[in-house]
Amino acid sequence: MNKFLALFVTLVAGALLAYGAEGLPPWGDPQQPASIHVSPRYIEKTVDETGVPNAVTSVLADYRGYDTMFETSVIFTAGVAVMMLLRGMNHGKRS
């Protein structure tokens, strides 16, 4: 019963996604909205402004440095959380 309900919900969600995908641009369209908003500026100015030919690195580290910084903080927090959860539980059991 539970599995049939889950399958039904999954199929409804898939149908909704397929309905939504109808409005998306075709694959590899150079004129799709994601490719004409800010990314042409990044590609055209990256060598002049930062001296880095790899646009991915210049966007990652310079134009969107805040994003990367807090992603790094998230990784650091995850490492600390794993450390605290596993070792903290161990110490609690021992004492």
Binding site: D48, T50, A61, D62, M69, T72
Partner: peptide, 25 residues
Amino acid sequence: VMARYYGMALIELGVQITVMAVMVS
């Protein structure tokens, strides 16, 4: 322009060290 180049190298170093240490940990 070159200052931005070297600044990006520095922060990539920071990302590299954190990712390496956290994955191993």
